[in-house]
Design a protein around this nucleic acid. Structure first.
Lengths: 140, 140
DNA sequence: CTTGAGCTTGGAGTAAGCTCTAACCTTAGA
DNA sequence: TCTAAGGTTAGAGCTTACTCCAAGCTCAAG
């Protein structure tokens, strides 16, 4: 599969794919004419990359994980990747909480704007924002 | 309250607060000597800003909301802010789903690394990544 | 009155993650 | 064979959200 087909299939721009190669995150094969060529292995890889990205991994962290995966399995590698993953799981849990509370708050704000009878005054919203703010302050 | 007290209280750097003023997101009062001065009104505002930030609003979107709020209420304003909020609620809902699924997947990856018997082969993980990838593809 | 901490400004620099430009090569179709 | 679409590169530029710097003002304590 050439770069533009791969680009369309996965919703990443040509430039992004070239950038990922330069960053050594996703390195395609090359045809005799120098054109990039993506195969099934690259499909698996790009899916993982996209998933890790949406759940909050930086490209650097993704690269770390990919590089660890390439090395022969060892205690050290496991500890490193485990730490990275545990860390991320913690952050994701916190972020889910914040988003859930934030969604609720936004719904109230919306009701308030619409003049809904259930949310007659700003006090309810003020309290929710206060709670959400407090949630942001203390980790996990 | 002066800038450094306000900075410490809300965990924003001096530069960030000055940047927020420059960006017209949070404009403090001024003392006779030219020093910035933050009061209760600014406390409320900064709490809202921090909350909106963690749930995924960009500073530009935050500014939009703040500017709409300042104007006299009107149908047009309500429609605009409602759209912004609805949009965000949709994105947050999707993000929560992705994070929940992502967390599950990360837990499986972790078990796999640890050699846990429940996740003996990569196929389970592969499927989860496939599902998560599909979730990322289609909006809401 | 000096010293030093803390405030002010404008403007430059940074990091992440792309995005664009220019110049040039390759290939398929009329 | 010409042309247009699509591939290549190096390197500059952009956006967001800060972050840092230099030069200078303010103020409290000794």
């Amino acid at each position: 599969m050439n770069i533009s087909q791969f680009s369309k299939k996965h919703g990443l721009s040509l430039d992004t794919l070239r950038f990922y190669e330069k960053s050594r995150i996703l390195i395609p094969d090359r045809l005799a004419n120098g054109y990039r060529s993506y195969n099934d292995k690259h499909e698996q890889a790009v899916k993982l990359i996209i998933c890790l990205k949406v759940i909050g991994f930086s490209l650097d962290e993704i690269k770390q994980l990919i590089e660890l995966e390439k090395k022969p399995p060892s205690e050290t590698c496991n500890i490193i990747s485990n730490q990275l993953i545990d860390n991320k799981i913690g952050m994701i849990s916190k972020q889910i909480k914040l988003l859930e509370y934030g969604k609720e708050t936004l719904n109230d704000i919306k009701k308030y704007i619409e003049g809904n009878a259930f949310v007659k005054n700003q006090k309810i919203i003020k309290n929710k924002i206060e709670d959400l703010y407090n949630l942001t302050k203390y980790s996990c």
